[in-house]
Design a protein around this nucleic acid. Structure first.
Lengths: 254, 254
DNA sequence: CTTGACATTGACGTAACGTTAAGGTTTATA
DNA sequence: TATAAACCTTAACGTTACGTCAATGTCAAG
């Protein structure tokens, strides 16, 4: 049995455009072209289309499908498993999203939209709380940074502009640090830039900066798991890398 | 505080391209353009960007976000709720997909890929089973279609080409029926075409066609909930509509 | 005065098709 | 047999939310 493009399209419940597209990208060429230039599909093509649609149904990209159907002995199961992992991740994200939307609707239904001002206050409060957790008695004693004592009040007194600025700076530190991390050299240009940005960032919270305190904090990032978790979030080993960079920056020897 | 494009981009952790794009599509214009043609953003823009990113985080399209942020009194909660429904549906589909992929991996791991031939046999067997369920003793008696007796054997004897053809025809019936349904007129051109296609489709299963049997089957679609469920799957009321069309087609009076 | 960091607009690329547009071919019907 | 209806072709733009050059202008620092 031979099929014109439309007959095949109706059989498979897809558009003719799709079939032409599949021809174009080479995942399903017609068996032959007749004298009028019409595409003619045969049994093999029907089978192949079925395979394609099967994988498509599973959400596999056409690029991956191409790999599957063009190489006869391709490991379809491997592709499927990879795809499966992606799907699970996607569902995790979706779940998170859904719960966020739920919360938002609930809070909006209760009262009017939280004002941005309030949001900022919220952010600031959170920062203070985090600091409180971080610069607890024990850590303070251990590293002796009396300068951090006034950190909290300083944050609370920040204007929104200052807050914006420090937020931006914090982002910059992370960005630079990530780029530096990829070079693998804590004494390199990028890493030193990151250390310098980190100093600037710290200066927002501290009244007076000293190399010793800076190095102390850097060491703390490695020793205290709450900090390590934060810095290693994106890349494991980042906290150690930052410490090494800061040590070099401040001229501290391990 | 005023921001250049890059400072704002770093503050919000997005690219400058994104900000230019938001300007382009009009969801976030800069406060002003300075003498050098640079974009200058102010406090209001920061606030607005925060809103935009908030909704973006929730997966809302920029088009919808535009509606939200441009009209000051727009009902953000309504948009969120609609979006929420979509998300739930999406998760449902995703769950289905995941379980399908799971099953596929499991079955592939057990034995080699199910051959297409086998698939067709599977489809055919399913069709026979469905028919068996549908044309059960009680229905047969009620409508007296002795012709459908041989339906099953006929299906089993089909070649793949015939099978393809009848599948296509079945699809066509549904398509036409849907289009006709939208016109709302069972006596209209489209509906009569659907009835005619339905006759052709039936003829694949029947040895001899009669108007009376055709009308009987059409009535059965309405009386038997298994059929009704099938035809009403896409559009409630479709079964009744098809019956009416077939009644007109066959000249049967209700 | 040069260099580097930053800014601009413009335009192509992405994934998987949908949708015209302009024009040839086959089939059905009067 | 003429013609209309149905079907085929390629070409090319539109879709989403930006990423990524390219070519060029501006500004602060050394």
């Amino acid at each position: 049995m031979e099929y014109t493009i439309q007959r095949l399209s109706r059989l498979a419940r897809i558009s003719t455009r799709t079939l032409r597209y599949y021809d174009e990208i080479g995942i399903l060429k017609p068996a032959r072209i007749n004298s009028s230039g019409y595409r003619v599909y045969g049994k093999n093509e029907v089978d192949r289309l079925q395979q394609i649609l099967f994988y498509r149904e599973l959400g596999v990209s056409l690029k991956s499908i191409k790999d599957i159907v063009t190489s006869p002995s391709f490991d379809g199961i491997k592709v499927l498993k990879e795809h499966y992992e992606k799907l699970l991740e996607k569902r995790g994200q979706l779940d998170l999203l859904i719960s966020n939307v739920e919360k938002t609707i609930a809070s909006k239904e209760g009262r009017t939209v939280m004002m941005d001002k309030e949001k900022f206050e919220g952010f600031k409060q959170k920062l203070v709380d985090d600091n409180e957790k971080m610069y607890g008695e024990e850590i303070r004693e251990k590293y002796g940074n009396e300068a951090v004592n006034r950190s909290n009040t300083k944050v609370k007194g920040m204007s929104q502009e200052q807050f914006d600025e420090v937020t931006e700076l914090g982002n910059e530190v992370m960005e630079t640090l990530q780029a530096a991390f990829e070079t693998g050299d804590p004494g390199g240009e990028l890493a030193q830039k990151a250390a310098d940005l980190h100093r600037k960032w710290l200066s927002f919270y501290w009244d007076n900066y000293t190399k010793e305190a800076h190095a102390g904090v850097a060491q703390m990032y490695v020793d205290d798991e709450r900090f390590t978790a934060y810095y290693d979030k994106k890349q494991p080993g980042m906290a150690v890398f930052l410490r090494d960079a800061v040590f070099i920056y401040t001229g501290t020897k391990r």
